[in-house]
Each structure stands twice: as C-alpha cells, then as structure tokens.
C-alpha cells in the first residue's frame, strides 16, 4: 500500500493514500465525538482548514468529502462562535431592511471575497452578501441555497459578518413571503377541514389484505 504524510495539528502521521481526511484521522487513532456528523457532505460538522507545501494559500474542505494530499497540514474547525439573531419570524417583512436590522454588520462588507474563496461548497458567498445589502432577497436565497452551514466563511470575514445566518434568513423570507403559496395546497387544506376524504380512508382501513391488494394491483399510475 502506498502511504502519504499528513500533519494533524502539526503532528506527523503516515496514512494510506487515497483516504478522505475523515478516514485518515480515524486511521491515526482518533475517534470522533466532535468534527463528524453525516459523513456525506450535508451537515457541515467537519469543516477542515489545511495548507500544502506547494502553495501559500489556505485551503478548506469538508473532511468527509476531501481526499488527503501528501504534505497536508490540517486542523478541523468543528465549531466557531457566531451570534444568530433571534426573531419572531411571523412578524418579519421580506425586505432588505429586515436583513440589515437583524444583521447590521453586513453593511461592513469590504468586498474582499475571502468568504467565497474559503467556501467548501463553492458558493459565491460575497455575492449573496451583496445581494442582501441591495435588498435582493430572491438572489440572496438562490445563491446561498447549497449552504451546509459549516461556518468557515465567518472564520475568515474581516468585517465579522456571519454570512450563513444571513443566507438562512433570506431563504426563509423568500420561501414564506416572496415565493407564491401553492394554490392547490390551500384547496386541499379546505377539503381536509371539510372531512372530504374521511369516509374513503375509513373504507380502506376496513378492508382486508386481499381486497386492498386487488385495489393496489390495478391502481392507475400517473404518466
């Protein structure tokens, strides 16, 4: 087996080539309590910062999705302090003023683009922060959609913005107030209140397996 050298918080380890950072850490004897979550790239628990020998650049990745490289110096950032604004969501208006009132620090953005550069999801973070400043909630919501809330953007921000909470609020405002409510859902809720389907369900519940199976096997399937 081919091995590569990695440095876990500065300490040197030899691990088999081709592992993800997460599996490499386990290979060195770590059992995660913090720093591991879904292990599938969705939860943002395993944000990892690293440098390699060939570049001065700080790089990042989710430990469960990033393959180790020879000479990688790494540390996990399983947590980073951030203040989330508290709000009564039902009382908010879907405007830029709402975003700025709850997160006034967005106005401090100096357009350095550090957040975009560090995002392991390749989200254009600075662009959505700018959309928030302009009051373009729809754009902010759309651009931030793939966010797994790992928090790495906030670790780099010289203006101390917590970008991922701004994106979260923009998406909720968009989903609740800007996107149109589903008209068919309103109709169905009304029908449910009128107990339109209760009898039919009761009839199905009273059927034995044989009768149900007959119905099921000949049910029509929407094309």
């Amino acid at each position: 087996m081919e091995y590569v050298t990695i440095y876990v918080m500065g300490k040197e380890y030899q691990v088999p080539k081709g592992l993800t950072i997460m599996k490499a850490l386990e290979e060195t004897g770590y059992q995660f309590v913090r720093g591991a979550g879904c292990r599938g790239g969705f939860c943002g628990a395993c944000g990892t910062v690293f440098r390699t020998r060939d570049s001065y650049k700080t790089k990042v990745g989710l430990a469960c999705q990033t393959v180790i490289e020879d000479g990688m110096y790494l540390t996990q950032l399983p947590f980073y302090p951030a203040n989330k604004a508290l709000y009564d969501f039902k009382k908010l208006a879907p405007t830029g003023e709402t975003l700025v009132a709850l997160y006034p620090e967005v106005m401090r953005c100096i357009a350095c683009n550090s957040c975009t550069k560090i995002c392991p999801q390749d989200i254009k973070v600075m662009d959505y922060v700018n959309a928030a400043i302009r009051g373009d909630i729809a754009k902010c919501a759309d651009l931030s959609f793939n966010c797994v809330m790992c928090g790495l953007c906030a670790t780099r921000c010289p203006a101390e913005i917590v970008q991922y909470y701004v994106g979260l609020l923009a998406r909720r405002l968009y989903g609740a107030y800007i996107a149109k409510p589903a008209p068919h859902l309103k109709t169905r809720q009304k029908e449910m209140a009128e107990k339109k389907f209760d009898d039919e369900i009761a009839k199905l519940m009273a059927m034995d397996t044989k009768a149900l199976k007959e119905l099921y096997d000949k049910r029509d399937i929407e094309k």
């Binding site: 969501f89 909720r172 405002l173 989903g175 149109k180 589903a182 008209p183």
Partner: peptide, 13 residues
C-alpha cells in the same frame, strides 16, 4: 411553507 422552506415551485406557486 409558512416556515419558509424553499420548495421547487412554478412561478404561480
């Protein structure tokens, strides 16, 4: 929908 979940929707909702 009320919580603001961004479902895939057509422009008319």
């Amino acid at each position: 929908e009320e919580l603001g979940v961004m479902f895939d929707k057509s422009p008319d909702g």
